[in-house]
Write a protein that binds this DNA or RNA. Sequence first.
DNA 1: CGGTTTTGACCCGCGC
DNA 2: GCGCGGGTCAAAACCG
Length: 259
Amino acid sequence: MDAPNPNNEKVGTLREELEQLQKENEALRLMLEVMTRKYRLLHEAYLRESNSDFPTICRGFTRFDLHEQFPDKSLRPEVQVSAASSSQVFVKTDPRDESLIVKDGFQWRKYGQKVTKNNPSPRAYFKCSMAPGCPVKKKVQRCLDDKAFLMATYEGQHNHDVDPTIGQSLSSPGSSATAIISATTPTSESCVPVNPFRPSITLDLNLSGSNHENSNSDNCDDKRIEDCVAAMTKDPDFTAALAAAVARSIVEQPKPPTP
DNA sequence: CGGTTTTGACCCGCGC
DNA sequence: GCGCGGGTCAAAACCG
């Protein structure tokens, strides 16, 4: 009569798995908080040690000046191309997508592709084709550590304007590419905004539920970090990515020499 | 048909 | 000088 319901067994198993995942999630959240505290300490130490100000380009990252330039999020490009002499942009893409296309508001013509020694993923070479004689080139290659990321290296300065239609396409809801991290070689020129395409790489964490209210005060950095931590720990994509990274770091740890 | 992509060949700088 | 690796060229293929 009261035969054991196989569904009950399944529910129990799933519940156990869920509890296990919740524990792992909590552990990862704690790890993230520790990392955040360490970052804060390092940041404060750096500020104490450095006699001069951060370069403008660096302050730009912490102050999220993208939100100053693009108050309307619907018009905010996720990637801004630097006009600095050389800069790097990391763009998150669908790892299943084999193409090496980084939509950044400019039109590019591919002129070469190479497999480099240290990275099995091919590196693609592009020239800007929006204007004749534009000297800007870019190299695009998948990150060795995480194939979901494309690393684009820009060289040169554009001698023309950006196509706004291409730039806006970046912020379309269906766009899968998101600029996550960027870096540039700071030049004296890069700190001086000279035109709308001034040398500035900006950052949009694009966090679900995060408060991106702009603030001009550096004192807000701590509050912002806490907000980011809270938002990130609520983001299932982030926790999954972090879990993968932790797992990878564990796997890649050098094994102790066997006796 | 014109612009773009592909891909093998070539060039050049660097380390040994 | 030689080999290696990264960057570019250019002809053919492809595409709208």
